[in-house]
């Protein structure tokens, strides 16, 4: 009897004021996202600091570019890369670097052919745009040249000479920006 009376008394207490208090506390718990917001704010600041609206250039894995203190921005133009293995035009391999370097002449015929076609196409586009009265980019013969830092000057000279022969006379050397000068 004593047991029954105890349980009954407990039940009565639940139906009483204690039960209503528990019911009040049972509400939807909100997730605390303040710490997550903190992390995202730091990330946002970091990303805004490193944000760049310059055209994105992809560099081949086996190209280690030299450093410069120049602050001139990269422009949109065709991209010639001289890696340890290949000479690439807009990331498409044209000729093996070793094959290009051994030639007697300064001109690289394989590269000249492709560059010649590119120049013709670019000129044609520029003329068509001009005829239609659309303001567009004129052909200015700009080339972005990326080369590995250990590339011999002979190779650079050959590529530049070939560019010059196909009316790409405005050569821009692509380098890694560094505020500290390298000697």
């Amino acid at each position: 009897m004593a047991g029954i009376s105890a349980s009954q008394s407990h039940k009565s207490s639940l139906t009483g004021s204690a039960f209503t208090k528990r019911k009040k506390k049972a509400r939807v718990m909100e997730l605390n996202i303040t710490s997550l917001i903190d992390v995202l704010t730091i990330l946002l600041i970091f990303l805004l600091k490193n944000y760049s609206s310059d055209p994105q250039l992809s560099t081949s894995k086996d190209i280690e570019l030299p450093y410069t203190t120049s602050t001139e921005r990269v422009k949109t133009a065709i991209n010639i890369s001289i890696s340890k293995k290949w000479i690439l035009l807009d990331n498409k391999p044209i000729i093996k670097t070793q094959s290009a370097i051994v030639g007697k002449y300064l001109d690289i015929p394989e590269l000249r052919k492709v560059l010649g076609k590119k120049a013709m196409a670019e000129k044609l586009i520029a003329e068509t745009w001009k005829k239609k009265g659309i303001e567009g980019k004129e052909f200015d013969g700009t080339v972005l040249l990326q080369a590995d830092k250990n590339t011999p000057y002979k190779m650079i000279k050959k590529v530049m000479y070939t560019c010059g022969n196909t009316e790409y006379n405005n050569i821009m050397l692509t380098l890694v920006k560094d505020d500290n000068p390298h000697y």
Partner: peptide
Amino acid sequence: KLSVMNLSL
């Protein structure tokens, strides 16, 4: 960050 250096040939 990349940068360019102009060159006249």
